[in-house]
């Protein structure tokens, strides 16, 4: 495994419009790590993801992704944007959505696989492998609009993986899933990360479903950021300092760490019970 960090951020700042989103941010994400970008709404989590994808320029500092500039690295990154719903009456199969992730951006007719059956078989094999990896084989041939949120999310993860990227970027993939599906999809992402040695960067507003799997945490709040292993960042002392409000971190008997904060502090406590929604 290479020792070059998958993401290397040095004293980076981003300004959108005239507003500084965050500044002086520095952290590394190692190859093959499972990292989470956490923080309250409006802290600039999605902005950080866009900067890593090279869709948003830095105002200051440097940012290296997979050993090159963000724009050069983009083809090697699988990206899952913030939760999107397929309309219930959309009659396109899940397997076609995954297939579009493989070659949907190409112009012209798919001549090679129309002419050569081997090319078609090879394509089908890649798609089937990814669908199998995310456990979506049973429902991949049904129209995606008819599937549940969790089933759709599995297929979208397969879509992001189908080009065998070196890094996977997920923007709030657990948002608006019910509790069992949150746990299942979180376990799936961790599983994929470990099985394929892919670096995973995931934006989340609730840390609890993924806390046990994380190698690294980047916490954004109030225009500043803090990065490190969860054991160092997810502590009462650090979080209280970051938020300027008392926050407790409880260690439950079964091992996993549970974070509890003030009720009005979105993002840190277990607010998924209330069906919390984001714009």
């Amino acid at each position: 495994m290479s020792t070059i960090p998958a993401v290397e951020v040095r004293e980076a700042s981003v300004v959108v419009g005239a507003e500084p989103i965050w500044s002086d941010l520095s952290f590394d994400i190692g190859p093959g790590e499972f990292a989470a970008v956490l923080g309250p709404n409006g802290a600039g989590k999605s902005t950080l993801l866009k900067a890593i994808l090279g869709l948003l320029p830095l105002a200051a500092g440097t940012l290296r992704v997979l050993g090159s500039s963000p724009a050069e690295a983009r083809p090697r990154i699988g990206y899952l944007p913030q939760r999107r719903h397929f309309q219930a009456d959309l009659r396109v199969r899940g397997i076609d959505i995954v297939g579009l992730g493989l070659d949907g951006d190409r112009w012209g007719l798919p001549l090679p696989r129309l002419i050569r059956p081997s090319a078609q078989r090879q394509r089908t094999a890649v798609i089937d492998e990814m669908i199998d990896l995310v456990g979506a084989t049973a429902f991949a041939r049904r129209p995606i609009g008819e599937l549940s949120g969790g089933e759709q999310q599995r297929l979208l993860i397969a879509q992001a993986l189908v080009r065998r990227p070196q890094m996977l970027m997920l923007d709030e993939p657990l948002d608006s899933l019910d509790l069992p599906n949150q746990a299942a999809v979180a376990a799936l992402i961790a599983d994929v990360s470990h099985q394929t040695a892919i670096t995973v960067v995931m934006v989340a507003h609730d840390v609890n479903p993924i806390l046990t799997y994380l190698d690294r945490v980047i916490y954004l709040a109030g225009g500043a950021g803090l990065a490190g292993p969860p054991s160092e960042v997810i502590t009462a002392e650090t979080l209280t300092r970051l938020y300027g409000t008392p926050i407790e971190v409880l260690h439950s008997a079964r091992g996993p760490v549970v974070v509890v904060g003030q009720p009005d502090l979105t993002g840190v406590h277990g607010d998924q019970h209330g069906g919390h929604h984001h714009p």
Partner: peptide, 23 residues
């Protein structure tokens, strides 16, 4: 339609990812 068919399908069902993929 033969030329733009696949990107059009991609952009129609999944505009965000299609844009991220350079469509």
């Amino acid at each position: 339609l033969g030329v733009i068919g696949r990107p059009l399908l991609f952009a129609s069902v999944d505009p965000d990812v299609a844009r991220a993929r350079g469509v």
